[in-house]
């Protein structure tokens, strides 16, 4: 894996490129800086491992830049997520071939109940601005998202978080717009059910 070769800390890359960089590089770097941590969260939910998620996102970024680096800014997000989705699928296949299916989190029914998990977390003293409650909701949300079927979770994250429209989501995941609407509706309903106590 490429990312594993980068083990030593290096100089941080500033999000603002140098003034003498070409303008298109500036825009592309800003896009990558914005999408990267969000993509890691999405990949981690799909792969169940933050390290694998970081590797998958790095591979996806390199493939994206190589193939679509010169695409207009409004086309970048769907293209990047399509590549990332393919990369996640590749990781699943590789695990299956190697007999490492157990790496994958028991994504649906075998996970602990998010309600139980959230209440089982160590008590966090509430801060003056309600951070403790916010953190607990975040943990519950992560657990609930992990319980969704893969397609439902992907559709939900692309629509609700990445703000892709139905057509873009359908093209990204290679499904029909009707399928996107169905998955999104079911994901919303399931999340509301799982997080009802948090509302």
């Amino acid at each position: 894996m490429i990312a594993r070769t980068i083990t030593e800390p290096s100089l941080p890359m500033h999000d603002a490129p140098a003034a003498n960089d070409p303008p298109e590089i500036e825009t592309l770097e800003a896009f990558l800086a914005a999408v990267q941590p969000r993509a890691v969260v999405m990949a981690r939910l799909a792969l169940g491992s933050e390290d694998d998620a970081l590797d998958a996102v790095q591979d996806a970024m390199m493939a994206f830049v190589r193939r679509y680096g010169d695409r207009p800014a409004d086309e970048r997000r769907p293209l990047f997520h399509r590549i990332l989705d393919n990369r996640i699928t590749d990781v699943h296949r590789t695990r299956t071939r190697r007999g490492k299916w157990w790496w994958r989190p028991a994504r649906n029914d075998d996970l602990p109940d998010p309600v139980d998990q959230a209440t089982a977390e160590p008590a966090v003293l509430p801060g003056p601005d309600g951070h403790a409650e916010h953190d607990q909701f975040g943990r519950s949300l992560q657990a609930a998202l992990a319980r969704l079927p893969d397609r439902q979770r992907q559709v939900f994250l692309l629509r609700a978080w990445e703000q892709l429209d139905v057509r873009e989501t359908a093209e990204t995941l290679g499904v029909s717009p009707g399928s996107v609407k169905t998955h999104y509706f079911r994901a919303q309903a399931r999340l509301r059910e799982l997080l009802e106590h948090q509302r």
């Binding site: 290096s10 770097e29 800086a33 790095q58």
Partner: peptide, 12 residues
Amino acid sequence: LAEARRAALAER
């Protein structure tokens, strides 16, 4: 993450 971005942009 920064190093990954640097590697990707070098690819470009």
